[in-house]
């Protein structure tokens, strides 16, 4: 495999909170177009890894290269501009804002935020708005035609499944290279989870270049959508491979079920 196929490579990523080592020298590679599943018991460091990677927490040690760029010192804003977008475990939407507004929050790297443009060149603003609105609606329509007709409704009025869809649209609108999904099925029924995973697979069909890292506890989801999986326990990677390799690994069984 050539080096350019690797989108994200992490070497020895470590995060300490005082004496607690939440992430312990994690090495990881994600190829372009790959879907990597992230497994591990609660508190094993999966979300911490997302938070470190996206600049919410600093790296205590180690580094990460993304598309040839060292992102270990990047702020959250710079990580986003480099092309990493994420969703949150506790869905973080602006509930009082409209569906369209929420999606546009995710598109900030393409928005003209100049005072002159926004306050005085209203004609140009209206044309820009029209174009972005169409783009956002097309994206939403790909997930759910029903949602595309409700662009101006407040997100707080939508059920969890739709909120997750909107959150993923918010992450995708800026056309990132890497999408981080933090437990997208949290708070949803089995059937809803199934639908959402179908949506994610269809997104992948449309954008084969997009890489995804997904944290999930639903094993059936992992089996269905991931190309390979990595398992964390106490901040360390204990296993990596295809889904079948991982679930049959004795260390993984021990981490999840305890020693028999």
């Amino acid at each position: 495999m050539s080096a350019s196929d690797v989108l994200l490579s992490c070497e020895g990523v470590t995060r300490r909170f005082g004496g607690l080592v939440a992430l312990d020298h994690l090495d990881l590679e994600v190829k372009r177009g790959d879907i990597l599943g992230f497994l591990g018991p609660n508190g094993s460091g999966k979300t911490t890894f997302f938070n470190v990677l996206t600049g919410i927490y600093d790296f205590s040690d180690g580094q990460a290269h993304f598309a040839g760029e060292n992102i270990s010192k990047h702020s959250a804003q710079a990580v986003y501009r480099a092309g990493i977008a994420r969703t949150f475990q506790r869905s973080r939407m602006c509930l009082s804002l409209s569906l369209f507004d929420n999606i546009m929050v995710g598109n900030h790297k393409h928005l003209n935020l100049g005072l002159g443009f926004n306050l005085f060149r209203r004609g140009a603003f209206a044309r820009d708005l029209e174009q972005r609105y169409e783009q956002a609606r097309d994206l939403v329509r790909a997930f759910s035609p029903n949602l595309a007709d409700r662009m101006s409704e407040a997100v707080g009025g939508f059920p969890m499944l739709d909120r997750r869809r909107i959150e993923i649209c918010r992450a995708l609108i800026s056309q990132p290279k890497l999408l981080l999904l933090d437990e997208p099925s949290a708070g949803m029924t089995h059937e809803e989870t199934h639908q959402l995973m179908g949506d994610i697979l269809s997104v992948r069909e449309h954008t084969p270049e997009l890489s995804i890292i997904i944290i999930e506890h639903e094993m059936s989801v992992m089996e269905r959508i991931t190309d390979h999986c990595a398992v964390l326990n106490f901040g360390k990677k204990i296993c990596e491979g295809t889904y079948q390799d991982v679930v049959n690994n004795p260390q993984v069984r021990e981490a999840y079920l305890g020693i028999e």
């Binding site: 996206t54 600049g55 919410i56 702020s75 959250a76 804003q77 990580v79 986003y80 501009r81 977008a85 994420r86 949150f88 973080r92 939407m93 602006c94 509930l95 009082s96 804002l97 507004d101 546009m104 929050v105 995710g106 900030h108 790297k109 928005l111 003209n112 935020l113 005072l115 926004n118 306050l119 209203r122 603003f125 918010r170 800026s174």
Partner: peptide, 27 residues
């Protein structure tokens, strides 16, 4: 006009969730 612009949107996003806003590039 400020409210009805991308700036108004940015300000609302900062008010409602600073962490999510930072992850979408808002300073």
């Amino acid at each position: 006009r400020l409210e009805r612009s991308w700036i108004g949107l940015s300000m609302d996003a900062v008010r409602l969730d600073e962490t999510a806003a930072a992850c979408y590039g808002l300073s």
